[in-house]
Design a protein around this nucleic acid. Structure first.
Ligand SMILES: [Mn+2]
Ligand SMILES: [Mn+2]
Ligand SMILES: [Zn+2]
Ligand SMILES: [Zn+2]
Lengths: 143, 143
DNA sequence: TACTATCTTGGAACAATTCTATTATAGAAT
DNA sequence: ATTCTATAATAGAATTGTTCCAAGATAGTA
C-alpha cells in the first residue's frame, strides 16, 4: 500500500477514491469489471461515481498500467498484471484464471499466414471447468 | 444457394430477408458484425430491420450454425465457419483472418492448472500487421 | 493559506443489443 | 387456389455498458 502511494506520487493526483481503486487492483488476479471495481469502492466511498471508476481505469490504461481483457462478450474486464500471459475461463462460473506460460515458440503458423502477416503477438483463451464447479458433479465432466 | 434453401427447408421459415442473410453468411470469412449484415441485406431489402438481423443471428446460433467471435471490444462479430479454428487480427485495419491449425497437442499446461481445471478447448488470437497495411510502410514493421 | 490544474460527481448522451406489440407472411392444411 | 396459423418482420421503446459534460470540489504546489 505504501508502495502504491509512492509509486504514483507526483505522477497523478492521489485522491481517496483513486487510492481505493489502486488498492483494489493491486495484485488483483480476479479480472474485475468496471462494476466490480465500483461495487468495491462504494463500500468505503458510497458516493463514488461510475465516471470516476471509468476515468481512473482510462488514466491507468493511458499510463500503461492496466490492460483490458476481451473475453466476456457482455463487458470489459481489467487486469493489472501486464506481464504477457494467457487466460483460462471456466465455462460454468466464467471465472478467468491466469496462465504464465509462453507458447510462442511452439505456435508455428502456416507459411501462407507468415507471408501475409508480420506477427506481433498472441493470446490464448483456454476453456475448462474449474474444480469448484466440478464439486459434487464430477461425473458430468469425466470422459 | 440451392443448397442453402434445401438445407433449411422445413426447419425454419425461409423468408426473403433470411435467405439474403444466409446467402451473405454462406462461406463468409469476413467475420461480419450485425451492422455489416444489416448494411448488406439493406441493399436488397431497404426496409429490413436490425431486429430481423439479430433474430436471425440468434436463430442460427440456437441451431448451432453460427458462432460469436469475441475479439473486438466494441462489437460482436459472427462466423459461419464452425470448424474449430484460430484467428489473426491485423492491429492496423482490425481485419480478422482464420487459422486452421490445431495447436492442442503442443499447448502443455502447467500441472497446477491441469489439477484445477478440466480442459475443454482453446482459442488463439494472433496479432500482426497484414500485407495490405504494410504496403508503403515496410520499414515501420521490420525488426 | 491561497491558487489552480486536475479530479469527482450526477446526469445526459451514446452505441450495441434486446425486447415488445403489431402487422405480415411462409408453408401447411384444406 | 384459398384459408389458416404459427412464425417472422417491423418500428420503435427499453436496456445495458460505456463515454461525455458541466459544475463544484480538492490535491498538491507555491
Ligand atoms: Mn490475467
Ligand atoms: Mn473465423
Ligand atoms: Zn467455475
Ligand atoms: Zn491490416
Amino acid at each position: 500500500m505504501e508502495k502504491i502511494i509512492s509509486k504514483y506520487k507526483g505522477k497523478f493526483k492521489l485522491t481517496p477514491q483513486r487510492i481505493a481503486i489502486l488498492k483494489f487492483l493491486d495484485n488483483n488476479t480476479g479480472h474485475p469489471t468496471a462494476e466490480d471495481i465500483y461495487n468495491e469502492i462504494r463500500k468505503k466511498y458510497p458516493t463514488v461515481s461510475f465516471a470516476t471508476v471509468y476515468n481512473t481505469i482510462q488514466a491507468l490504461k493511458d499510463r500503461g498500467e492496466l490492460s483490458e481483457v476481451t473475453i466476456d462478450p457482455q463487458r470489459k474486464h481489467f487486469d493489472p498484471n501486464l506481464r504477457p500471459h494467457h487466460h483460462i475461463i471456466c465455462t460454468v462460473c466464467n471465472r478467468i484464471g491466469d496462465i504464465f506460460t509462453d507458447f510462442s515458440a511452439v505456435l508455428h503458423l502456416p507459411e501462407e499466414i507468415l507471408a501475409e502477416y508480420t506477427l506481433t503477438g498472441n493470446h490464448i483463451d483456454f476453456y475448462g471447468v474449474c474444480s469448484e464447479c466440478r464439486t459434487g458433479k464430477e461425473s458430468m465432466f469425466q470422459q
